[in-house]
Amino acid sequence: MPAPQNTAVTPMPTTQRFTWMDTMRGLAIVLVILRHGSTTLIEYQIFPTIWFQALQDVLVPFRMPALMLLSGLLLDRALKKNLGQYTLGKMQNLLWPYVIWAAIFLGVSNGGEQYLEPMAWVSTSYLWFIFFLMIYFAIAPFIKFLPAWVPVLAAWIGSWFEPYAASLLGQLLYFAGWFFLGQLASRHWDLVNRLLRPTPAIIAAVLAAFGAYFSLTYPARIEYRVEIVPFAIAGIIAAITLVRAIPDARTGWIRFIGRTSLVWYVAHIPIMLVTRRILVMAGVENFWIHYIAGCTMAFLGSWVLARLFQRGAPFSWLFKAPWPKPKARTTA
């Protein structure tokens, strides 16, 4: 009689740092900055050429979902802390920089005229990603008893009936599916590793190409809809497989961006807006000058801030609350 097979689920190791995650996050942040290099010009009626806009649209279904999934991969690791440590950590690393940079953004964009408007602080412009993460981390401790697939399915079913473009709720639901998909993936790491192999990755890349084509053909209808999710998952699988194959010796600079991704994410738009305003005041209207200058200053300024952040206080207070970490509880 054959021995029974071991069907135990293998979770992602919680004591190991995966360098490919830093690389993947860094690449996503670079793509976000390059995307915003053109979208921040819309209010000045400066538009890119059709082919360049199409090139940007191709990546829309993959970029932010990948960032959200990577955040969800680390959810179970965070949930191992007691509720006090968990809550204080999220206030320190998410709520604090959100408030600081929402204030900076509102000040730069309209001179602070909206400071007294409560809704201006809700999912503020590009900071929606941080705002959504705060909500997901807030509800995660209260639904951790559920099977990991339940919040993923519930979120995307809700997103089907409340599409992304319809409301803030629709956007929350769509990206909640990606966040909790990351948690689900972290609990089935053996399956993930089987998917991150050359043959499955090639098949996934072909599927992702179809998704990119649909996104390019119908960008306003399908870029953040449930219909595109399978193709986006395929694209992310292919991208992770490729990134994992790159030696760490060649990814040091991009891993630095990934490790300090919060700094780059919150800082790049205000830097771009200041650059835009200076160029407009100088009478510059050429798209490429604006785009290259905006992206260059965003990368340079974010790099300086990331280096200063690593030096600690007082520079780190822009991105992390200054109160100390709570002492870990010990048992006799």
Score class of each variant (00 low, 15 high):
5 Q>W: 12
7 T>Y: 13
10 T>C: 02
10 T>V: 14
12 M>G: 03
13 P>Q: 09
14 T>I: 08
15 T>I: 09
20 W>N: 07
24 M>C: 10
29 I>G: 00
35 R>N: 15
38 S>Y: 13
45 Q>C: 11
46 I>A: 00
47 F>P: 00
53 Q>D: 15
54 A>G: 13
56 Q>N: 13
57 D>M: 14
60 V>L: 15
66 A>G: 09
68 M>W: 07
71 S>P: 03
73 L>W: 01
74 L>F: 08
77 R>L: 03
79 L>I: 12
79 L>Q: 13
80 K>N: 14
81 K>E: 07
83 L>V: 06
84 G>Y: 04
92 Q>P: 09
94 L>F: 04
94 L>R: 06
99 V>G: 00
100 I>K: 05
106 L>I: 03
107 G>D: 05
109 S>N: 11
115 Y>E: 09
126 Y>S: 11
127 L>M: 11
128 W>K: 02
129 F>W: 05
136 Y>R: 04
150 V>F: 11
152 V>Y: 04
156 W>Q: 08
157 I>E: 01
159 S>N: 06
167 S>M: 06
174 Y>T: 08
177 G>N: 10
179 F>I: 04
183 Q>W: 08
186 S>Q: 10
189 W>N: 05
192 V>G: 05
195 L>I: 01
204 A>C: 03
204 A>H: 00
208 A>D: 03
212 A>G: 15
212 A>N: 07
213 Y>M: 08
214 F>T: 08
220 A>S: 14
230 P>E: 06
240 I>H: 00
241 T>G: 06
244 R>M: 12
247 P>L: 04
249 A>L: 12
252 G>W: 13
252 G>C: 14
254 I>L: 12
256 F>H: 10
257 I>H: 02
258 G>I: 04
258 G>D: 08
268 H>W: 11
270 P>K: 07
271 I>F: 14
271 I>Q: 01
273 L>I: 12
276 R>H: 14
283 G>M: 12
283 G>A: 13
289 I>M: 13
289 I>N: 09
291 Y>K: 00
294 G>F: 03
298 A>W: 02
298 A>H: 02
304 V>L: 15
305 L>P: 00
306 A>Y: 03
309 F>E: 05
316 S>G: 10
317 W>L: 01
317 W>C: 04
319 F>N: 01
320 K>C: 09
320 K>I: 13
325 K>M: 07
327 K>W: 04
327 K>H: 01
